[in-house]
Amino acid sequence: MAYVVNATWTAEPGQEAVVLDAIEKLTAPSREEPGNRFYQAYRDPAEPSVFRLFEIYDDEEAYAAHGASPHFAKYALGQAIPVLAKRERAFYTTIG
């Protein structure tokens, strides 16, 4: 079974570019992490302040390692999350 994370980041008004920049910088190193199977951010043009991230890891420990990584600390915790109006996360495991 894999560990799946579905995150939604909603930027404060006027902070969309800051969040977008952080996600763009976070994506490549996140995809290279051991235990990462898939990492994709996306955005609905009708809701430019809402960013969604779909992530799949080998297990919960791999996700925890992602959250402890230097690139997550720099771009997520240090850049994007401080300018979010809302942050939501849902966690799942795959079947089969």
Rank of each mutant, 00 (worst) to 15 (best):
A41D: 02
E33P: 08
G78S: 08
E16S: 08
P34M: 06
E33S: 12
T10E: 14
H71S: 05
F72R: 05
A68P: 10
V5D: 08
Y39N: 00
V50A: 03
D59L: 03
G67D: 09
P70Y: 15
L84K: 06
R37Q: 13
E24R: 12
A90N: 00
A2L: 11
G67H: 04
E55Y: 05
P70D: 15
E32G: 09
G67S: 08
Y42H: 03
L20P: 09
P34T: 02
A85E: 13
S30P: 07
R87E: 15
R87I: 01
V4C: 01
I56K: 02
E33C: 14
F54N: 05
Y3D: 13
T27P: 06
S49A: 03
I81Q: 08
A41S: 05
V5W: 07
Y92F: 13
R43Q: 00
T8D: 13
E16C: 01
A41Y: 13
E61T: 09
S69Q: 02
F38D: 14
A2D: 14
P82D: 13
Y75R: 14
L77F: 15
A17C: 01
I81G: 05
R89M: 09
M1V: 14
G35L: 07
Y57T: 10
D44H: 02
E32T: 12
I81W: 09
A46H: 00
N36H: 00
E12N: 10
V83H: 06
L84P: 14
E47C: 11
A64I: 02
H71V: 15
K74W: 13
A11I: 04
R43A: 04
